[in-house]
Structures are given as structure tokens and as C-alpha cells.
């Protein structure tokens, strides 16, 4: 079991890299695609990066519904 806060920080780092952001201190409720600038064509990169980061397999449906860091953290925590 990962420590509280660790999952969120690692998710933030993945989003920061995929969205090419300068830092990872954005709102956990910001829309990944419309507000944080994750290009929709980079969705697979985000998904695969999260899977590799946490050594998990994320179902497409769960990923499709998760549009914020907070939602991604919930998905990841449910699989680790």
C-alpha cells in the first residue's frame, strides 16, 4: 500500500510531464484536457505512463471517466 499523498504526487508528476507543464502545483480538480493542456492525442501516453509508474493495468472505461488528477488518484488507489 502506498502512503497517503504519494500517489497524488506521482500522478501529478506524470501529468506534468505529459502536459509539458513547468510545475506540478496545479489544482487537483482542474480538467486535464481543457484546463491543464493535456492534448487529447496524448491520452494514450498519459494512460500508459500511469500504468508504468504504478505497475498496474487501468481499464479504459475508468480512465475515460477520470478527467482530473483527483479522479486519476482514485482510479490508481483502487488498483494498488
Amino acid at each position: 500500500m502506498l502512503e497517503a499523498g504519494e500517489v497524488e504526487q506521482r500522478v501529478r508528476n506524470v501529468v506534468k510531464r505529459v502536459a509539458k507543464l513547468a510545475n506540478a502545483d496545479f489544482s487537483a480538480d482542474a480538467d486535464l484536457f481543457r484546463e491543464l493542456g493535456v492534448e487529447s492525442v496524448a491520452a494514450l501516453e498519459l494512460l500508459v505512463s500511469l500504468e508504468e509508474e504504478f505497475s498496474i493495468e487501468i481499464p479504459d472505461a475508468a480512465f475515460n471517466d477520470a478527467r482530473t488528477v483527483r479522479a486519476l488518484v482514485t482510479v490508481v488507489e483502487g488498483l494498488t
Binding site: V41, A42, A43, L44, L47, N64
Partner: peptide, 11 residues
Amino acid sequence: YASKTYWQVRG
């Protein structure tokens, strides 16, 4: 292929 196809089909 993989990323673009995922983007097209998913959307």
C-alpha cells in the same frame, strides 16, 4: 499509430 488510433477511436 498507437497514440493516434487511441485518440481517434476513443473520441
